[in-house]
Write a protein that binds this DNA or RNA. Structure first.
Lengths: 251, 251
DNA sequence: GCCAGATTAAATGTCAGACATTAAAATGCC
DNA sequence: GGCATTTTAATGTCTGACATTTAATCTGGC
C-alpha cells in the first residue's frame, strides 16, 4: 500500500482509499487490528494527524472502530445491517431533498419496491409482523394524533410489511426508500377523512397478508399508492390556487 | 450548535453529528459555505485538528467538499446520485461479504427488486436502453470471454433494464443490489452451455421489453432467477462432493 | 501459591503553533 | 482598461507535546 505525493488528492483521502480497498479485497478481515497510528504514519511516510484524518473517514463509513488504551487501536468493523440502515436513510433523505426529486418519482420507486416484497411477505410473515401491523393500524385510528406521529406510525407499519419477507437484504434496501419518503409525506395534511381511508387500506393489507393472499396484497398496495399520490396532488393544487390568489391581490 | 465535553463520544464525532444534523434539517443549504476551520474551532472551543477530523468524516459521506485558497473553505455538497451509487455499492458489497449472506437470500432480493422495475421499464425504455441491452447480449455470446467479463457484461445488461424504468430513485436503490451480487456471481463458472442458456433468456427479456410486454418480461426474469440459483447450487454441490472425496482420501 | 491493589506501558484523543500550498482578490503599472 | 504582480485568506501538513484510557504487569500481603 503506497500513496502518490503528486496526486491532486489529499494524503488522507489516498490513505483512506488504500485501507478501504484492502478491506473490500479481503486483505484485512473483520476484527483484525490495523497498525497503530504511529506505525501507519511511518508506513505511509506522513504525520500522525494525517493518518488520523484518514481513519476518521473510514470510521464515518463504519468500516473501522477505534478503542483507546493499551492493546487498543483501530479494528476492521463488521458492517452490521443496523449500521447500514442508518446511513442508507440519511443518504436517501438527502438525495431526495437536494435533487428536487418529485413526490411522484419517489412514491413510484417506493411502492414499486414495496410491492416486490409483498408476495414474499404474504408467504412468510410471522405472527409478530402481523401483530405490529395491527398495532400500528390501531394507533393510526386514534384521534388527536399529530400528522408527524401518523407518518411515523405509517413507516413502522410498512417496515413490518417489508420485514415480513424475511430477507434482511430486502429490508435493508427498502429502509432507505420507505423512511426517506417521510419528509415528503409530512407535507401532506392528513384529514380525518383521509386517515380513515388509509386505515381502511392498511386493514385490507393486513388482512390479505394474514390470509397469505399475495395478489390481494399487491392490489391493495396499488390502491394505496394511487390514493397517496391523489392526496399529494391535492396539496400541490391547493397550494397553487393560494399562490394564484395572492398574485391577483398583488396585481 | 454545541458539544458536550462529558460525552463519551469523540469531539470530532460530536461536531460532525452537529453539522450533519444541521444539513439534514436544512439549516445549512447546498453550496453554503461553512465557517473556516479556525472559526469552527473557536465556536466549538476545540483545536483545529479536531475540527478537521470532523470535516473529514463529513467529506467521507460526500456531505461537504473543500476548496483551498482564498475564498475557499468547506461547502455543503449537493449529494449526487452518482456519488451515492458508489457508496451504496461499497456498503452493499461489504454487507454481503461480512455477514455471510447466502447466495439465495441475496439473489432473491436482487430479482425481487429487479422485477419491480421490469413493468415500468417495459413501458418506458428508450431505444438507448434497448441498444445497450442488445450490445451486451452480443458481447456475452462471444467466445473467449472470461467469467469476470461475462459477469460485468451481465451487470451492465441488468442496469440498462433497471434504468429503462426512467426513475433515478429506483436506479439508485437497485445499483447496490445488482452490483453487490457480482462477487457472489463470480464464484460461478459459466460453461459454454450455461452462457448459451443465459444469452437466450437475456434475448427473451430484451424482446419482451422491446415489445413492451410487462408480463413476459417478468416471467422471463423469474426463469432467469431460477436458472441462476440452479447454477449456484450446482457449484455448491460440486464443491461438497470434492470435499467429501478428499475426506475419503485422508481417512 | 494466589489474589487485590498499585504501577506501568501503549495506545488513542487533544492541543498549540508553525510552515507550505493554493487560488482568489486586490493592487499597480502601462 | 487590461495585464502582471502582490497580497491574503483559506486549506493541507508537520512537529512535538500532553491528557486520558485501558490492559497488562508488577508487587505486596495473606
Amino acid at each position: 500500500m503506497k500513496i502518490d505525493p503528486d496526486s491532486s488528492a489529499d494524503f488522507s483521502a489516498q490513505i483512506a482509499k488504500a485501507i478501504r480497498d484492502a478491506i473490500i479485497a479481503g486483505d484485512l478481515i473483520v476484527d483484525q487490528r490495523l497498525p497503530s497510528e504511529a506505525e501507519l504514519a511511518d508506513q505511509f511516510d506522513v504525520s500522525r494527524p494525517t493518518v488520523r484524518e484518514a481513519l476518521k473517514r473510514l470510521a464515518a463509513q463504519s468500516l473501522i472502530r477505534t478503542q483507546r488504551g493499551a492493546s487498543g487501536g483501530a479494528f476492521v468493523n463488521r458492517l452490521r445491517f443496523e449500521d447500514a440502515y442508518a446511513q442508507q436513510v440519511t443518504t436517501s433523505t438527502l438525495l431526495l431533498s437536494m435533487n428536487a426529486v418529485s413526490f411522484d418519482v419517489a412514491c413510484e420507486a417506493r411502492y414499486a419496491l414495496e410491492r416486490a416484497c409483498a408476495p414474499l411477505s404474504a408467504q412468510r410473515r410471522t405472527p409478530d409482523h402481523l401483530a405490529t401491523m395491527r398495532a400500528e393500524i390501531h394507533r393510526q385510528g386514534q384521534p388527536g394524533l399529530t400528522d408527524e406521529a401518523f407518518c411515523a406510525s405509517d413507516v413502522t407499519f410498512h417496515r413490518a410489511l417489508v420485514d415480513g419477507a424475511g430477507n434482511k437484504v430486502l429490508s435493508y434496501q427498502l429502509a432507505g426508500a420507505v423512511e426517506a419518503m417521510q419528509p415528503l409525506m409530512n407535507m401532506i395534511t392528513f384529514t380525518a377523512r383521509s386517515r380513515e381511508e388509509i386505515v381502511a387500506l392498511h386493514t385490507d393489507i393486513a388482512d390479505a397478508v394474514e390470509a397469505q393472499d399475495a395478489a390481494k396484497t399487491d392490489a391493495t398496495l396499488a390502491k394505496l399508492e394511487a390514493y397517496t399520490r391523489l392526496l399529494a396532488h391535492s396539496v400541490v393544487t391547493a397550494r397553487a390556487q393560494r399562490a394564484q390568489g395572492k398574485e391577483h391581490k398583488t396585481a
